[in-house]
Design a protein around this nucleic acid. Structure first.
Lengths: 184, 184
DNA sequence: ATTTGTAAGTTCCCTTAGGGAACCTGGCGG
DNA sequence: CCGCCAGGTTCCCTAAGGGAACTTACAAAT
């Protein structure tokens, strides 16, 4: 597949998807963060081939997202645990899950819920502005070039266009039913 | 690749990654939401083959995330615009971008910045609890089975383990048989 | 002292997604 | 009539990924 390594591209989304753009990788992180850390468990739970799992885990370790640790010396047994970098990926998974819950949950509701232990509520994760804590949407944000901005292919910074077209005037009503119960 | 379609899996992360697990798909969404909407522009900006772009766009349209619209009748020209479902994916991209910025930004800083027009600040997107608006982390959340929870492979709900092991604490014990709730 | 069992990978073969690049199809503008 | 976009298709070929068997290292059971 050539894996055109997007690492050279300036956009952080590209950087991140270069690692997590693989469907498996995100699922591995979910499992590891949720307590499934052993090779065989991961293979079975996620349902990917042992070969590919080994490759992904090696990549994640190389990237410093996971570490491989011996949790038992004899017989030697390894497990994969998330580094801080890996743990901080959890919120991204929560945001993804919230989106999936909203648009793909069946009539019964979402398959899992998140309890925010700090406040005790069942949480619906929202992506918010760190300054005012209000939710961020495509309509009320603008992308600006950043200090590290090598603007090149992969990073057109067309902020203003968003406000113009992104929301307010959705082309001839394209609204769809949020609940889509029959996946192909 | 067989694309083992994860649609059957209960976890919403799996559902979402089934669509966005492709590195290209997330980049397409980023571009479309940021104003790059035409076929050739997308192909060039993202750097993927026209063939694969056509396939991904068709998938995204089929999934109701984008619509294909004629923005000019003569000569006929098409563009892809995000539906509400697609626009609501933007926060997920922001969360991903924030993670990428934090862990991959070079010394110069991130390549792009987000201005939250509502409050005027440059925003660092955070994933927060909708109830208390505090950031959600792996350490202070617990995964619970949800109403639609067909717990199966792909959704072990081992919430308590997170608090125990997710942060700080190395490895309390070798929980051989974790809490694994019985499948219904 | 073999046999069995288990965790964690490897290796082999084979299918197929995806890259590169050329080709196709309307509908102009000159 | 000729070329030239935009927006795709088609063809060929590489290599990523699935399935399944094999390997290594140890321990407990027979």
């Amino acid at each position: 597949m050539t894996r055109t390594s997007l690492s050279g591209v300036a956009c952080s989304i590209a950087r991140a998807t270069d690692l997590f753009g693989d469907a498996w990788t995100a699922l591995i992180m979910r499992d590891v963060l949720v307590g499934i850390r052993r090779f065989d468990e991961l293979a079975e739970d996620i349902g990917l081939s042992r070969k590919t799992l080994a490759a992904r885990l090696a990549l994640l370790v190389e990237e410093g997202v996971l570490t491989r640790e011996r949790y038992q010396v004899t017989p030697p047994r390894e497990e994969y645990v998330a580094t801080e970098k890996g743990r901080e990926f959890y919120p991204v998974l929560l945001a993804l899950m919230a989106w999936g819950d909203k648009w793909y949950a069946g009539p019964a509701g979402p398959p899992a819920q998140i309890r925010h232990d700090a406040c005790g509520h069942l949480a619906t994760p929202v992506v918010a502005c760190d300054a005012c804590r209000d939710p961020l949407t495509v309509a009320d944000t603008t992308q600006l070039p950043g200090p590290g901005g090598r603007v090149g292919p992969g990073t057109q910074l067309l902020g203003p266009l968003i406000a113009a077209r992104g929301d307010g005037v959705p082309a001839p009503d394209t609204a769809q039913n949020p609940v889509r119960s029959a996946p192909s």
